[in-house]
Design a protein around this nucleic acid. Structure first.
Length: 416
RNA sequence: GUGGGUGUAGCUCAGCCCGGAUAGAGCACCUGGCUGUGGCCCAGGUUGUCGCGAGUUCAAAUCUCGUCACCCACCCCA
């Protein structure tokens, strides 16, 4: 038996309506906010992610899928922001327009151990706005994320925001943490003792009870933010209130990727398990310069499509499918030929139609018509053939009438 | 990378503890009741390498070991 790769999934036809609905509404909403789609390759040079996400992150250390081809090593992209910045620089987009809004929908790859809401191949729906440091942009992006969720009809989410400060502030925060935690290491969990060396920031959002106590006792609030960053964050909050976006300040929210600066946010949903973030993002004001471009501020976010679907599914299951199809039922060889030709004419007239090619009983064909959610069935037998008519049954009311074959298309058109 | 759980029909699961003869239920599907009419009802029917491999035994879905897959949690992250 052939098996799919660990942590991958087939998206089957029964689920595809949900995916397409989410993709289509995303495209619609992004366009409302002035975003254009960008599609970048799924494979990238390994150094792109080493240089952007941070050497110490788990993603770079062990979660990238490598593809070796002759002397080159490529990787399957673990996220899109770095790719988009690369494309932005490589195509000189900064020279064409110094403020740019881009969105993307596509697969990402991380070699993690799969669990609820976490696959090795998963899909991001996200965007990047490059070229402005204005706090209006921060607020607009967070409200865009909210707007997307509202359009998906997802309820029960929570938006958490924080500011990490500029790169100087981050450095300062790291120093404070290193210094203040030095003599408290024994109070921290084993993971945090490791984080102390690898990535001190992550100690702040540790779930462990004793670690939280230590963190709260540090009394960090605003100790590390410079005046500019403080003002910026205050403005973001005020603008969010102007846009009536409900948010919660999460003083210990840090994102895992090194490139984040200033505003960061995370949207969680109560119905998910431990992977409760359906989307997250923030500013990355230094990344573009870091990757060789001009000093350009930027901000973006991404939703995990599988996680969106996970929270949408219970509601979608109860939704009734619309009856749209016209189903042709035939009795006998001659009628089958007639039906076959009529079927093609219906489709030429842009009427969704189908029939059964298995020569089944009328009852069997009827059942199938019902199972496929037919709006009408067209019945062709010996009697109808002689009269040049077809039986037309309304599958909702159950009423049936005879219609002249040449009037059928006009009749169905009127009804739809 | 670490820990725990689960693999039996297309789907959801019972049976496993305490080994025993043709491996079950509900749903789905098919056929008929209704020889040309779906849904409701009734009757009947089809579907299984019991995840895979080895071991113990007269005998294994059941016990043991290994292996693979999936799920959940840690880690990490969307």
């Amino acid at each position: 038996m052939l098996k799919k790769v660990l942590g991958t999934r087939d998206i089957l036809p029964e689920e595809i309506d949900l995916w397409q609905e989410i993709e289509n509404s995303s495209r619609f909403v992004f366009s409302l906010y002035g975003y254009k789609e960008i599609r970048t390759p799924i494979i990238e040079d390994i150094s792109l992610f080493n240089r952007s996400l941070g050497d110490s992150t788990e993603i770079v250390q062990k979660q990238m899928f490598e593809i070796k081809r002759e002397k080159e090593i490529y990787v399957l992209r673990p996220e899109a922001t770095a790719s988009i910045v690369r494309a932005y620089l490589e195509n000189n987009l900064d020279k064409k327009d110094d403020f740019l809004k881009l969105y993307y929908i596509g697969p990402m790859f991380r070699a993690e151990r799969p669990q609820k809401g976490r696959l090795r191949q998963f899909h991001h729906i996200g965007c990047e706005a490059i070229g402005s440091l204005n706090p209006y942009l921060d607020a607009e992006i967070i409200s865009l994320a909210k707007r997307l969720l509202d359009t998906f009809n997802i309820k029960g989410y929570e938006i958490k925001i924080n500011s990490l400060g500029c790169s100087d502030d981050k450095r300062k925060l790291a120093e404070i943490l290193k210094k203040d935690l030095e003599d408290k290491l024994s109070l921290l969990c084993v993971d945090c003792q490791d984080r102390y060396q690898r990535n001190v920031f992550r100690i702040l959002d540790c779930k462990n009870e004793s670690c939280r106590k230590v963190v709260v006792a540090l009394n960090l609030s605003d100790k590390y933010l410079c005046k500019d960053c403080l003002t910026h964050f205050e403005s973001v909050k005020i603008h969010l209130e102007r846009l009536k976006v409900k948010y919660k300040i999460a003083p210990y929210l840090v994102r895992g990727l090194d490139y984040y600066t200033r505003t960061v946010f995370e949207i969680t949903h109560k119905d998910l398990g431990s992977q409760d973030a359906i989307g997250a993002g923030g500013r990355y004001d230094n990344l573009i310069k870091q990757l060789g471009g001009k000093d350009t501020p930027a901000m973006g976010f991404a939703f995990g499509a599988e996680r969106l679907i996970l929270v949408k599914k219970p509601e979608a299951r109860s939704q009734r499918l619309e009856r749209k199809l016209t189903y042709i039922i035939t009795l006998g060889k001659k009628a089958e030929t007639e039906g076959f030709i009529l079927l093609d004419r219906l489709r030429q007239a842009e009427i969704a139609a189908d029939m059964d090619y298995r020569e089944r009983s009328i009852k069997g064909q009827m059942r199938r018509a019902d199972a496929l959610m037919s709006r009408f069935t067209v019945i062709i037998g010996e009697d109808e053939l002689e009269k040049g008519m077809v039986g037309l049954k309304d599958m909702v009311s159950g009423e049936q009438r005879e219609v002249k074959t040449q009037d059928l298309i006009g009749y169905l058109k009127k009804k739809s």
